[in-house]
Nucleic acid binder design. Structure first.
Lengths: 207, 207, 207, 207
DNA sequence: ACTATCGGGACAGCCCGTTGTT
DNA sequence: AACAACGGGCTGTCCCGATAGT
């Protein structure tokens, strides 16, 4: 009758587990998050959990995937029309990043950064996965910055990829600090400074 | 008998435990580090551990303290004579930061940042402690930046504290990224860019 | 639709499950063999398993049945014509037992003996089933030995059934030892000794 | 005051755990015996268990050791004076074996044989350990049989070691059968037959 | 100041079995 | 006849902490 009714629940259950994992890992970190806790948060039993995921690390990877895809979707919306002025697109993107911090439930924590930090020294596999995601993020920024550079012939000769990694570092560091200060504003300020630095590189006259 | 006797080996044992904790937490994170693991690494028994520390969280705090004191000692050396040109002092400090990454055993992991990230969302007490340490680090940078600003009358009007927080963010983010990429160079590059930005604010002519 | 159709693959599936169970139980024992493992080995799902067998113990019993029937078929071939000399028949049978150990995939493990040993102290029902199978094996030997005795009037007065149980014990013990030593030869030697003992009872002159 | 009072309990606790393990493994087999079960039987907590044993397999090995040492002590008593007639010593030993079956709590199960059977196909390490113990048992029997052979010049030329392995096989097989039939008598009968066979080899005139 | 021993609970993961669907 | 999904409980192991003794 109602084709939207999921016969049993499989996709829903899997998604609920992942969402619960993302939430808890962002709050407590990966190691401090137990499978039991994820199940309780998701409202499923361990039997169901281990049907969908072979191990805790598997859900960790799934959480990273889900988180990153979610973020990419979130931010690419802000980019707008590729025909626009590259700098305008970049500005919208930066504004989107800053705005995302102020959403109440976001709590200023990047699951990717947290897991990279926590497991980077002990779990080779997760480190590689995080590396791929971080490089993806950076590649996006690199593309934008390269376009901006090309659209501004007067600019100094900077390396877009270097700058993209710097932006990534600022972003991760800002989130870390913001989480500790429980105040996302400094993160927004940092982005502004990055933008100002870019302006200087492009030859804009500071106001 | 003789309470004035400074005990047989206590300070050594205590220090060994703290060093073991610092090492393991930087490698695996706080939650993934067990008291048993710390004892094994330090070569002491659990009884000895709980004689010196009442709980696991207590050793966590002690590790933060030890780490930060160690870092402060490490970096203040680079500052040199307070009579020097402020910008020269700042440059030496930045160079010292970059240099510290290349030490082989350092492995690009900041215990303070890791614990702030991992426990910031769940342990109020640790978050406060980390906040204090981060603010201390920032205050140091703020002082340097304020002095630099004052020594350069031609500079734009920037807020030293804002810039100090930005530097802190860049530093933490760079460590996070460097740990993941297993390559400290991008961190050094980021510091260079920060320096360039500062130069622009000071009215230096870019090269 | 057509209930008379003997189903699509049921007999095959059922047999595959049983074969998988026999294989795994002989390798790991009954308790260490999981239903999931049997399904994986057989290439079926749990649903299929529990369609054919109500419980794990049911497949245990089915495995015993299958194993014993297989063995009986294997050995009765060796007996040859009932009209032959009883001792010749017995010799062929003993040779068949010894020969069966040298087949590479047989790995010297008797599922019946293993389950009797493992479950004999805890599962009354399985113990009874194993008892029946062991008695059947012994009855076969008893028949052969009785015929041999009757065909040799000069023999001492021995109890064929006692001797049959002894042979059964030697066989089970030899398999156990052979499995541990990973060498079936001692089992063959033991059968030779049994044969020599029988010869002595029959009044044969030892060579 | 009372030196017999164990300050806390360590040796007692360890021994109690091993005894519980031996008892339960002989009843249910190794895999079916859980650490929880052992703890409950021994009246200790899991914390205590895992203080004394690193893993379940470690207690398995300890149980084998304890069992074998216990058996050796049990049987060597029966051997009596080494100056005695070798055959008399052997007879006393065989009688001791038979007698041990009739003790009520013994329940006719050899822990060594059970673990060899159950884990021989899956746990290489345990198989090796069991092999060592079985060889030790056989070596004892070999020594006795060799002495008997030497004391009886009229005997046929048999290999004492072969015969010792046969005796071992008979013993293990008899225990397996006895456990299933819940009747130790057939095991005693089998030993009698072995003795008769030996007599034949030695040139004794059968009665 | 330090050790050996233990308690009690949590953790990841596996187990057997059931249910609804096709 | 078979499958995907799931429930609930158990297993081996680890963990933090406490206690009694020296």
């Amino acid at each position: 009758m109602h084709p939207s009714v999921p016969s049993r629940s499989s996709p829903t259950t899997r998604r609920r587990i992942i969402e619960a994992a993302v939430k808890l890992v962002r709050q407590q970190g990966y190691s401090a998050t137990s499978v039991d806790g994820i199940c309780a948060e998701a409202g499923v039993t361990k039997g169901a959990f281990f049907y969908h995921f072979r191990s805790k690390s598997e859900i960790g990877e799934a959480a990273i995937d889900a988180w990153c895809q979610n973020r990419v979707e979130l931010y690419t919306v802000d980019l707008g029309d590729p025909e626009d002025d590259p700098l305008a697109r970049l500005d919208r993107w930066l504004d989107g990043l800053a705005a995302s911090l102020r959403k109440p439930d976001e709590s200023s924590a990047c699951l990717l950064g947290m897991m990279a930090q926590e497991l980077g020294g002990s779990d080779e596999r997760v480190r590689e996965i995080c590396r791929g995601k971080l490089q993806g993020w950076t590649a996006l920024a690199t593309g934008l910055l390269a376009a901006v550079k090309q659209s501004r012939p007067a600019s100094l000769d900077f390396d877009p990829e270097q700058l993209a990694w710097m932006l990534n570092s600022i972003w991760q560091g800002s989130l870390l600090i913001a989480k500790n200060l429980q105040d996302p504003e400094s993160a927004a300020v940092n982005l502004k400074h990055f933008r100002a630095y870019l302006g200087a590189l492009l030859g804009e006259t500071p106001k």
